[in-house]
């Protein structure tokens, strides 16, 4: 059974149909990079995967749970799906450690001591052990985004969603975040990454998906999509960004 199964997904904002009939099947441990022009629906698709946007039509099944089921417990399903945002969205009134421990402690998955231990391990993993007591405003963008990744990982999700995690960063900080993501991919995390970092997609992705106008126009291995794109729109897009 695939880890993520998307069938006939559509999404409209009023009259504006942003996603049209998206089908997508993602295996456990796969890393999918989603590329495409601005406004093509990449973020919307990603946000449908944890129902930050509710789908207009179609079904999404993650880990056997139909997360598009209106009677399902979406809060429960979301524990299993981490998300990292372009703007980090750290909680500015909390320390780094509190950011990481908030969800597991509030949801009574761990007590504060256990959560603190997990936070320390995660911070070491993202190379920020010494920042546990800092507040987000004291960190650089790259550091904040690594904390955001640690925060999502504290819930021990099976799936991680990334929406342009490096787009708001100064160029010299992009690498440190991509490295953490690469390490996560190597450890077998199932990842869906919306990105403009074609180098990362080429190196880390198992599969690249090109979205345009709300459709998946092309998908394949990085080799196939970057070296030998079949669709004219993919070719045009790649010519512009590469």
């Amino acid at each position: 059974m695939p880890k993520i199964e998307v069938k006939n997904l559509s999404k409209s904002f009023g009259d504006n149909q942003v996603l049209k009939d998206i089908d997508l099947s993602i295996e456990e441990g796969e890393v999918i990079c989603v590329i495409g022009p601005s406004g093509s629906g990449k973020s919307t698709m990603l946000r449908c995967l944890n129902q930050l946007e509710d789908a207009t039509g179609g079904t999404i099944i993650i880990d056997g749970n139909e997360i598009t089921d209106p009677d399902g417990d979406i809060d429960l399903y979301r524990r299993n799906i981490g998300m990292v945002f372009q703007q980090f969205n750290l909680f500015p009134h909390m320390t780094v450690r509190e950011n990481i421990t908030l969800a597991p402690v509030t949801l009574k998955i761990m007590n504060q001591d256990e959560a603190n231990k997990v936070a320390d391990e995660l911070l070491e993993r993202v190379g920020l052990s010494e920042k546990a007591d800092a507040v987000p405003a004291e960190l650089s963008g790259g550091q904040q985004q690594r904390v955001a990744i640690a925060r999502a990982l504290a819930m021990h999700p099976d799936v991680m969603l990334f929406d342009e995690p490096t787009s708001a960063l100064d160029p010299e900080m992009v690498g440190e975040v991509l490295n953490v993501m690469k390490q996560l991919a190597e450890e077998g995390m199932t990842m869906v990454v919306v990105t403009h970092e074609m180098g990362f997609a080429r190196e880390v992705a198992d599969r690249v998906i090109f979205i345009d106008g709300g459709y998946i126009v092309e998908e394949g291995t990085p080799e196939e999509v970057f070296k030998n794109p079949q669709n004219e729109r993919t070719q045009n897009f790649l010519n512009m960004v590469l």
Binding site: N50, L52, D75, L76, R78, R79, I81, G82, M83, F85, Q87, N89, L90, F91, L102, A103, T106, L107, A148, R151, A152, M155
Partner: peptide
């Protein structure tokens, strides 16, 4: 900012818990 609620909800917090915390 809207992203604060989204980040909290994406971690599995309920609307009420996200509001409170």
């Amino acid at each position: 900012p809207k992203g604060q609620m989204e980040a909290a909800r994406s971690l599995g917090l309920s609307y009420g818990a996200a509001m409170r915390k």
